[in-house]
Simulated assay, not measured.
Amino acid sequence: MNLDQFTNSEKQVARRYEYDDAVVFAVDFGAASADAAVDVVDATVMVVIDGEQYEMDLPDGADDAHTFIKNGVLTIEVEGDR
């Protein structure tokens, strides 16, 4: 999963956290982007913020992905083989 796809602006901060059973990606689009939508279609995470669409492919072998966005922070939790 390439976080650079979500950080094309220097204002966006992205982090990757690895745990025993999952990997969590967090991208801070800023509180001004609180009106945003996120969805997973097939193996692609799609985020729409202020009319701009961002896409990121899930890693091969990812069994499940949980996504949500709150207060401008996108969280993607990927379970399975990463």
Rank of each mutant, 00 (worst) to 15 (best):
Q5V: 11
Q5G: 01
T7S: 15
T7P: 00
T7V: 10
N8M: 10
S9A: 11
S9R: 12
S9I: 00
E10I: 12
E10W: 09
E10P: 07
V13A: 13
V13Y: 09
A14G: 12
R15E: 14
R15N: 12
R16P: 00
Y17M: 10
Y17A: 09
E18Y: 05
E18H: 06
E18Q: 10
E18L: 09
Y19A: 12
Y19F: 14
Y19L: 07
D20W: 04
D20N: 13
D21W: 07
D21L: 11
A22N: 09
A22Y: 11
A22S: 13
V23M: 11
V23L: 05
V24R: 09
V24S: 01
F25Q: 02
F25N: 03
A26L: 12
V27W: 06
D28T: 04
F29G: 03
F29D: 08
G30A: 05
G30M: 10
G30H: 08
G30Y: 06
G30R: 02
A31N: 06
A31T: 10
A31E: 13
S33E: 14
A34E: 14
D35G: 07
D35Q: 14
A36H: 01
A37D: 14
V38A: 03
V38N: 02
V40K: 03
V41R: 08
V41D: 03
V41Q: 08
D42R: 09
D42E: 15
D42F: 00
A43L: 05
A43N: 14
A43T: 15
T44K: 12
V45P: 06
V45S: 05
V45C: 08
M46E: 08
M46F: 00
V47G: 06
V47H: 01
V48H: 02
I49Q: 07
I49E: 10
I49N: 07
D50E: 15
G51T: 09
G51F: 06
G51E: 08
G51Y: 05
Q53V: 13
Q53N: 09
Q53Y: 00
E55C: 05
E55W: 00
E55I: 01
E55S: 12
M56G: 07
M56R: 04
D57K: 14
D57C: 04
L58G: 01
P59A: 15
P59S: 14
P59K: 07
P59Y: 03
G61W: 03
A62W: 01
A62M: 09
A62Q: 04
A62T: 15
D63V: 04
D63S: 15
D63H: 07
D63F: 02
D64H: 13
D64C: 07
A65D: 02
T67D: 03
T67M: 10
F68A: 09
F68I: 00
F68Y: 11
F68S: 12
I69Y: 04
I69H: 05
I69T: 03
I69F: 02
I69E: 02
I69A: 05
K70D: 12
N71G: 13
G72A: 09
G72P: 06
V73H: 05
L74F: 10
L74W: 09
L74D: 09
L74K: 02
I76E: 03
I76Q: 04
I76M: 10
I76S: 04
I76G: 02
I76R: 00
E77V: 15
E77W: 08
V78R: 07
V78Y: 03
E79F: 08
E79D: 13
E79Y: 13
E79C: 05
E79R: 13
G80A: 10
G80Q: 08
G80K: 06
G80L: 10
G80I: 07
G80S: 11
